[in-house]
């Protein structure tokens, strides 16, 4: 009988080998997944691409749940275009470089 940590580690191995989708992590505790994936990365047992792929999924999952979804919605090729100009009115007189400089103090 595998512990939850061992099951997560096995799934991460399967993701690395392309056997399962990163969505296989959906039902596990996010913090535990992060703890394991960071440990594996530190030990160089997963490559940077898989590391980023898992962090990306977990990041989107957290945001999706905060918006009321159970899982991350499917990618939408139109999303980058929709994002462009989303705050056009609010930021109309603002220079992106200057405003970020201001925020950074």
């Amino acid at each position: 009988m595998l512990t939850e940590e061992e099951r997560i580690e096995r799934i991460i191995g399967d993701i690395t080998e392309g056997k399962v989708s990163v969505r296989a992590l959906k039902d596990y505790d996010i913090d535990l997944v992060l703890k394991i994936v960071n440990r594996l990365r530190e030990a160089r047992r997963i490559d940077p691409d898989t590391y980023i792929k898992i962090l990306d999924y977990i990041g989107r999952l957290f945001l999706a749940r905060s918006l009321g979804y159970e899982d991350v919605p499917q990618p939408d090729p139109e999303a980058p275009a929709r994002l462009a100009g989303k705050l056009k009115e609010l930021l109309s007189d603002i220079d992106p470089v200057e405003v970020v400089r201001d925020v950074r103090g």
């Binding site: 918006l67 919605p73 499917q74 990618p75 939408d76 999303a79 705050l87």
Partner: peptide, 10 residues
Amino acid sequence: ILEDMIRLPE
């Protein structure tokens, strides 16, 4: 913004 961000392509 987040609604679009979580749907960004990979």
